[in-house]
Simulated assay, not measured.
Amino acid sequence: MTSASPVDHGKLAYDRQEVADALYRWALGLDTGDAEMFASALTEDVVVDFTRAGAKLGLTYPAIHGREIAVHALISSIGPLDTTHSATNVRVAMDGDRATLQAHVLAQHFPPGEGSAPDRTRHGLAMNRYSGELVRSGETWRFTRLSADNLWFEGDPKITSGEL
């Protein structure tokens, strides 16, 4: 009879927090237009797929293949906007150096410079369910795949696509 190796609960909790941190780097990178931070959350061959979320809003978001393309496409379209991406209900499942993540992300979008103006009402407020697959890259966790499905939306969807 062999016994399973003991689970290091401290290491498991640390890894789960680091997986969640990939989502936080993604969100803060978008909100601040910080391409380096945003890129740190992605593997070189990442697939970002928001096609389902876009379709529900009448928008065409093609799947994006590759970190360089994702950084250019999303930082240039979302980065200039006044945005906040807030992640909640983050759930992480670990499997060695691989992980999956589920979360709700509430994303508020205003045209550039208009987010704090009280008389501005044109906006896009989206609640999306994110699903991600991640791998450990050294000590850093990065998304290999990230997809979103829209749960509800309020406002003008064109703002979320960078169409102002």
Results as ranks from 00 to 15, higher is better:
R67D: 14
D97H: 04
A117P: 02
A27I: 07
A103F: 09
R129Q: 12
P112W: 08
A35M: 04
A39Y: 02
Q108Y: 11
A126T: 09
T32F: 01
V135S: 06
G124Q: 12
E139Q: 12
G54F: 08
F153M: 13
P157C: 06
S77W: 11
H123K: 14
E68I: 01
G113T: 10
V90Q: 03
E68H: 02
A22K: 08
M1D: 08
P111Q: 10
R98E: 13
I75W: 04
S131A: 09
A20M: 09
A93L: 07
Q102S: 12
S131K: 10
D119V: 15
D49S: 01
A55R: 12
T60L: 01
A27C: 15
A20V: 12
A63M: 03
N89V: 01
S40F: 09
T83Y: 08
I159N: 03
W26D: 05
D149M: 05
G132P: 09
A20F: 11
D82N: 12
Y14V: 13
Y130D: 02
L74C: 07
S3D: 11
V71K: 07
H65G: 02
F50S: 01
R129N: 05
A70Q: 13
V90G: 11
E36R: 08
F38W: 02
N150A: 12
T140M: 00
D156L: 04
M37L: 14
I78H: 07
T140P: 02
E133W: 05
V19W: 05
F143G: 04
L146Y: 03
P80K: 02
W141D: 03
